[in-house]
Amino acid sequence: MALGEVVAQLIAVRGAIQTAIGLTANAADEVTDALAKAEDALAGANHDLAMEGLGLWRRAQSGDEFTVAKLVAADEALAEYLEILSPGSGAGTKNTDIAKPSGEELVKARPTGSRSQNLFRTMVQRDNDIDDAMKDLGKHQKFLEISDPDWEPPPTYTTNEVGHRIPVMTAPDAPQPDAASIGSLAVASGILIVAGAKKAKDITKTAIEHWRSK
């Protein structure tokens, strides 16, 4: 494709993006309107279903801002690229008419520094609280195991000296059960293993829900 043709195509894409930004902004207004009407109609009511509906629409409102911010970012990136392809032609002029919504903070200025510094800073300068997001230290264990090609899961059962199959305590450095306390330890360890599996499942579920709620 000739350069002129590429530039023409990209200008058309910018046109489509800007139309989409306009439509998405209209949608944002409609959602705000819908919320206001619903809140008015429900004044004083505190019904679970109605509250759920309001909650979903509020989520749509912030999602709308995020989507507009993505479109604005795409438009600006295209403008910068067009300026490189066709400097001074005006094709890369940024559209200052686009009213940036409150999602503007997502379109951040490019940082300066080495590549590793920039990536590191971007990763750690997030608003969320890391401790809160990763409440469970077991996540480190899980991810380290994933990245270890030789790692094998520890056995959950072993055989004692009298030939009985007994559960293994999986906590690091935990004492192994002896023959004298097989009965109580087998029960206790079994509970521990089941509880551990449930916890892992809960963590995964929470992580998925967290991702979906983004």
Binding site: K108, N118, L119, M134, H140, F143, I146, S147, H210, W211
Partner: peptide, 28 residues
Amino acid sequence: RAGLGEPELIEPLTYDDLLGASYLLTFD
């Protein structure tokens, strides 16, 4: 790609995503 100059791409990622990626990519 964020490490190659597109830092905004990690905006939507969770800490789980970042932590998982950090162990796997660092090791490899």
